[in-house]
């Protein structure tokens, strides 16, 4: 990244980096748990994505604000404390404003705390950069997550229920397997392969293999 050398920071690049190049789910295969757990309907997928977007942005902002005061040796516990603080905020607001969805996915909202991708961004980016770039980095990463969750849940609800956002669309008998847990794994597997294929065919970038 070149934000130290260049006088003008390329915000657009920061935003797209999280969405395409380092997409947490499809490319880095991090934070997969919620990607499958809550994506059996479009509404839940989008809500979860928004919660992550909020937490990631706020964590990046807070860490970036505090970066000059944090002693390097105790930085990880402090990062965890900041993250769990913001997750508690997201958790409680979700419980207050979206009761119906919270009943289904409350546990997964609380588990945002254990997301490797959020901690990784705090460590790799926010603790070294100024506030505005950190905020944009957080928004980009969060949007990438939201995008991945939306794609997965779009296909799963369309195929598994024949509906989108709760409204029926297709009038045939749906493929029940897609909303079962097994369908989640299959959907993510196929989408990941699709992303790899697009990457190889058009973008020619190096794919991350594990």
């Amino acid at each position: 990244m070149s934000q130290h050398t260049a006088t003008k920071i390329n915000y657009l690049e920061l935003l797209t980096n999280g969405i395409i190049k380092e997409n947490a789910i499809f490319k880095l295969a991090l934070s997969l748990c919620p990607a499958i757990a809550v994506t059996n309907s479009l509404r839940n997928g989008v809500l979860m994505g928004v919660a992550v977007l909020f937490v990631q942005t706020m964590v990046n902002l807070t860490i970036s604000l505090m970066r000059n005061f944090i002693h390097p040796r105790i930085r990880l516990p402090i990062f965890m404390l900041v993250i769990s603080g913001w997750v508690t905020v997201a958790d409680m607001s979700m419980a207050a404003f979206a009761r119906e969805a919270y009943k289904q996915m409350g546990l997964y909202i609380q588990l945002i705390v254990a997301f490797a991708s959020i901690l990784a961004r705090a460590e790799m980016f926010a603790s070294k950069n100024k506030i505005t770039p950190s905020m944009f980095d957080g928004i980009g990463m969060g949007l990438g997550f939201l995008f991945a969750l939306t794609t997965i849940s779009f296909f799963r609800e369309l195929l598994g229920r024949g509906a989108l956002w709760g409204f029926p669309i297709v009038n045939t008998k749906p493929l029940l397997i897609m909303i079962l847990p097994a369908g989640g794994f299959l959907a993510v597997g196929v989408l990941m392969a699709l992303f790899n294929w697009i990457d190889k065919k058009y973008l020619k970038s190096k794919t991350v293999t594990h």
Binding site: A29, A182, G183, G184, F185, L186, V188, G189, V190, M192, A193, L194, N196, W197, K200, T209, H210
Partner: peptide
């Protein structure tokens, strides 16, 4: 080729 590695692991898990 596109399924190599993680995607295939996901399908198997499914």
């Amino acid at each position: 080729a596109p399924f190599k590695g993680l995607p295939m692991a996901f399908i198997v898990t499914g």
